[in-house]
Amino acid sequence: MNDRYDSVILHFIARVFLVPLILVFGVYVLLHGELSPGGGFQAGAIVAAALLLVRLALGNRQAALRIPQGLLIWLACIGLGIYMFGGILPLILGYNFLDYAPIPVDWYNQFAGEARTARSMGILIIEIGVFFGVAAVLVLIYDLVAGSSRQ
């Protein structure tokens, strides 16, 4: 897989068509995790898979969506930080760790015009955390494992 495939069609499909589609699908899976099958993991995995497919198709060096490793580590840490925040916030508010009941949700409902419960709000928060964590780490692993050959 070290060679660059000089196929215009592959290039075009991967870059212009497939990847945005998969990314959009990933975000959809993330946000609709409560309604239909999906959630943070799946979304993270799908987005990561999209990014990895680009790398496979175009070769690592030329990949348009090359993300610096430092940034990936930051993203992973931020994702996990969000998750931990979702756990610690109730702790600060005097509830048990990860107990979403006290999470303030009214501001969001007014803003977005939905009728979320505090618990589903908590779920959304941690799903976002999981999404970033999983996607970032999976890309990071691939970059390190496969990219380390041609320094």
């Binding site: 409560e34 099958p37 419960t117 618990r119 589903s120 779920i123």
Partner: peptide, 15 residues
């Protein structure tokens, strides 16, 4: 009753 989201798996997983 409590979580009020349709996806059971998500509810269990994340709550």
């Amino acid at each position: 009753s409590d979580v009020v989201i349709p996806n059971l798996v998500s509810a269990i997983l994340a709550d």
